[in-house]
Nucleic acid binder design. Structure first.
Length: 423
RNA sequence: GUGGGUGUAGCUCAGUCGGUAGAGCACUGGGUUGUGGUCCCAGGUGUCGCGGGUUCAAUUCCCGUCACUCACCCCA
């Protein structure tokens, strides 16, 4: 009998670890909500041209990493490789930028890139992201970065750092690009790198090979060739971050893989992860709205990798999320007791208490073991003797203390026990 | 797409210098016929990734292949 396996490179989260996944995703989303970002749920696939034009024709993401296929109507569609293009498309399509600006949106979900999987790099990756469109105030750049930082701290991460730079804009980048190319052409580079220098020269700055790094010792840097406007914008972003207490380091050689970035660009890095050390990143994309056919509005946002945050937490030895499957575990001895506890379970669930019940024909010891494994704070044991007395046994699983409560008061007694942590 | 590593029980792995295999964890029951966590006892499962070669005999050696994994590239 042939068996099935999940597609290559796709992580799955099931209990008990799914609790941490949910907790990280929701905590990051909470950080976004705290700053006024409204949730947007987007299609998981879009017209291929949206990404080709939005992300950039020359990027690796577009040229070799997209899940592209023809639908039954022979339209070319692509599983979303990132979130920003879809958000911007939706903003334009629904005129979300006609109201008060900036439009502030956040999202969460799976993204897809056809890459060779390795530690921390998956073909289906989970991101939480935000986009703020329509205002180019440097205070907004600082806010976006601070929201990411707050999110990481809220999930309990400590060992990460923030790298920051400015990529300039359409006024100063073309001149710098030409300057950089001129510099690179004089270097003894291999063919592949030479080709990259012509196509996307900024990408060469990111080369990790020591011999290439050595050649680049005196390479001209964008931050030294920013126009006055970009210079001031960048300085003010840094000023706001300092006032916010968000620590950062300038990395003038930072390169992002998506073409739409302008001006402020940042990346959060965690050193406990191995080769794939970026746990989140983003930046400003002041030309994307116009590029995709909308009003020429600025924008800035980030994408945070939920999978990599989970790996980072693991590397730090930190845990997050409640792995207990219920608050109360009900243990019936006999059919009459079970009939009664099934009803109690329903009543408790209506009251918002997480309840599980021992099913199957296990002995008391086995059912109590089930109670222990469930992580429940307390257990209700109901047998024939209790039933005859009109009572039940309520046991605190931490202290081991057990007391008798009238069946009539059971629901409120359990609510109380679960609420204040003592039976 | 290119390299290295690894494929043995549900999981983590040991092992067989060639004679068809074990431990821990997990699970179930019992010790305790109405009480979990610690302890003790008992219980089961494997086409040893797949295909071929050498051999009396291959899970072991050889070749191929697939999968997983780490890394390059790139990114979350």
């Amino acid at each position: 009998m042939a068996t099935f396996a999940a597609p290559k490179g796709i992580p799955e989260y099931y209990p008990p670890t799914s609790a941490a996944f949910i907790a990280v995703r929701d905590t990051l989303l909470r950080a976004c909500a705290l700053a006024g970002y409204g949730y947007i749920e987007l299609p998981v696939f879009e017209e291929t041209a949206l990404y080709a034009r939005g992300v950039g024709e020359s990027t690796d993401v577009v040229t070799k990493e997209m899940y592209t296929f023809a639908d039954r109507g022979d339209r070319s569609v692509t599983l979303r490789p990132e979130g920003t293009a879809g958000v911007v498309r939706s903003v334009i399509e629904h005129g979300l930028d006609r109201g008060q600006l900036p439009v502030k949106l956040c999202y969460a979900g799976p993204f897809f890139r056809y890459e060779q999987p390795q530690a921390g790099r998956y073909r289906q990756l989970q991101q939480v992201g935000i986009e703020a469109i329509g205002v180019d105030d440097p205070a907004l750049d600082a806010e976006v970065i601070a929201v990411a930082d707050a999110g990481y701290r809220a999930v309990g991460l400590t060992g990460y750092r923030l790298e920051l730079t400015s990529l300039g804009d359409e006024n100063c980048r073309p001149a710098y690009r030409a300057l950089l190319q001129e510099f690179l052409r004089k270097l003894p580079l291999d063919d592949a790198t030479r080709q990259r220098a012509e196509l996307n020269p900024l990408r060469v700055l990111d080369d990790k090979r020591p011999e290439v790094r050595a050649l680049l010792a005196d390479v001209p840097l964008m931050v030294d060739h920013l126009c006055a406007e970009c210079r001031e914008h960048f300085d003010r972003v840094k000023g706001y971050l300092t006032e916010l207490g968000v620590k950062f380091a300038e990395n003038p050689r930072m390169v992002r893989g998506l073409d739409y970035y302008t001006r402020t660009t940042f990346e959060f890095v965690h050193d406990g992860l191995g080769a794939q050390s970026g746990i989140g990143g983003g930046g400003r994309y002041d030309r994307l709205m116009a590029e995709l056919g909308g009003e020429p509005r600025s924008g800035i946002g980030f994408g945070l990798g939920v999978d990599r945050v989970l790996l980072s937490l693991q590397a730090e030895g930190t845990s997050i999320g409640d792995t207990a499957s219920c608050d109360v575990y009900l243990v019936p001895l006999g059919d009459a007791a079970k009939a009664r506890l099934v009803v109690v379970a329903g009543a408790l669930r209506s009251a918002g208490v997480r309840v599980d019940l021992a099913y199957g024909g296990k002995g008391l010891k086995g059912m109590m073991r089930g109670a222990d494994r469930s992580g429940a704070r307390c257990t209700v044991v109901l047998g024939e003797r209790d039933l005859a007395d009109g009572t039940a046994q309520l046991k605190d699983m931490v202290t081991g203390e057990q007391r008798t409560v009238p069946l009539a008061d059971l629901v409120s007694a359990v609510e109380h026990a679960v609420g204040d942590g003592s039976a």
